[in-house]
Structures are given as structure tokens and as C-alpha cells.
């Protein structure tokens, strides 16, 4: 474990806490893409299939459980909780996210570290996470003004994988045989997808103005 990865995991956890705060405090999921939340639930379920078979550390197991439980809780809130469900705007959240699931799984069948059930689902979760934010970014562009908590949620979610890139550089430089091409390349693509969001987020922070993504 290095400082970049710990900072990355904490930033990821923070993004989830900010989203939970937004939904709990405002009893609304306006501006939040249910589809992105569903994709993240699939990402965690597919990636942590080894939750009960491979014990790496208490921290690792604890965080896996937190990520799985929180992502399922958020999807449950948006789908079932009467107050929150009413605020979900399905006419804005129209990205065909099942195409992302299909494409990621197909890619995992061809590009993986080992042709085993666990490794194919692990690669699938890595590819899917790289594109999971797309429905959310499309929704933000459509919904015009973005409330602060939703903007912060997306910012921290994008920043966490950026910190992981620093972690991979650090591990590459310090560990003799460290190579994680699937995670690295996918992580760079994932972070790059946030580039324009980061730009507009920085502008809104600099001008102390409302975050607005151009349509």
C-alpha cells in the first residue's frame, strides 16, 4: 500500500459518502444517473467475486464490502425509496448502458490476464468501470445546472482513479515485476473521460460560479 493508493481509496470512499449525503439530505436523486449507479454495482460485484475466497487484508475486505453495500444501497434508494424514486428523471437518463456492459464483457473475453472465470469477470469490471461514468456525464450535460453535491461526487469519483495512476507509476518504479496493463490503460481512459468535466469544474471553482456543462 502506498500513499497514492490510500488517497485514491479514501477519495473513492468520499465520493460515495458525498452521494449518500446528497440523497439522504435532499431526499432526491435529481442530477444523479441511476444507470451509472447500476453500472458501478455491477463493477463491484464482478470485481470482488473473490471476496470470500482470497483474503488479502482486513482493510481490503472491509472496503470491498463497503463498496458493494453502498452501491447496492444507492441503486435501491433510486429504484425503490418512494421519495427518492419520484425525483429520478428517466427522460434525462437515457444512455443505453447495457451496450457498455455487453462491450466490456466482450472485450474481457478477448483481453484478460488469464482465461478463468474470476479473471474474465475482473477484466470485465475494469473495462466497465472505465465507461461507467458516461451516463452520468451525459445526464449532467442535459440537466444544465448541477447541484454542488452531485458535482463534488463526480469530481471525487474522477479524481480517485487519477490517484490510482500515480499509484501504478509509483509501483512500477519501486516493484521489480509490477505490470498491470489492463488496469493501467483502462484507468487512463477512465480518467481522460473526466477531462472536460474537470475543466468546467475548475472554471466554476475559480469563478465561484455554478457548475455548468455545455450542452
Amino acid at each position: 500500500m502506498n500513499i497514492f493508493r490510500l488517497a485514491g481509496d479514501m477519495t473513492h470512499l468520499l465520493s460515495i459518502l458525498v452521494l449518500l449525503l446528497k440523497i439522504y439530505a435532499t431526499k432526491s436523486c435529481s442530477g444523479v444517473s441511476r444507470k451509472t449507479q447500476e453500472l458501478y454495482a455491477i463493477v463491484f460485484l464482478a470485481r470482488y467475486l473473490d471476496l470470500f475466497t482470497d483474503f488479502i487484508s482486513v482493510y481490503n475486505t472491509f472496503m470491498k464490502i463497503v463498496f458493494i453495500a453502498s452501491s447496492l444501497a444507492i441503486v435501491w434508494c433510486i429504484r425503490v425509496h418512494p421519495m427518492v424514486k419520484r425525483s429520478y428523471d428517466k427522460d434525462l437518463d437515457t444512455f443505453r448502458h447495457y451496450l457498455l456492459v455487453a462491450a466490456s464483457f466482450l472485450l474481457a473475453l478477448f483481453l484478460h490476464e488469464k482465461f478463468t472465470f474470476l479473471e474474465i469477470f475482473w477484466a470485465f469490471s475494469i473495462y466497465l468501470e472505465a465507461v461507467a461514468i458516461l451516463p452520468q456525464l451525459v445526464l449532467l450535460q442535459r440537466s444544465g445546472n448541477v447541484d454542488n453535491l452531485t458535482g463534488q461526487y463526480v469530481f471525487f469519483l474522477g479524481a480517485y482513479r487519477g490517484l490510482y495512476i500515480l499509484n501504478w507509476i509509483y509501483r512500477y518504479l519501486t516493484e521489480p515485476r509490477f505490470t498491470r496493463w489492463i488496469a493501467c490503460v483502462s484507468g487512463v481512459v477512465q480518467t481522460a473521460l473526466y477531462a472536460d468535466f474537470f475543466y468546467y469544474y475548475f472554471i466554476s471553482w475559480k469563478n465561484n460560479s455554478k457548475l455548468k456543462l455545455p450542452a
Binding site: R5, D50, D54, I56, N60, M63, K64, E113, W122, N167
Partner: peptide
């Protein structure tokens, strides 16, 4: 796990 190496990252 790949050649004995766990996916030790989240």
C-alpha cells in the same frame, strides 16, 4: 489471482 499474484488493489 494471476500466477499466484492476487489482485491486491480495490
Amino acid at each position: 489471482t494471476v500466477d499466484g499474484k492476487y489482485h491486491d488493489e480495490l
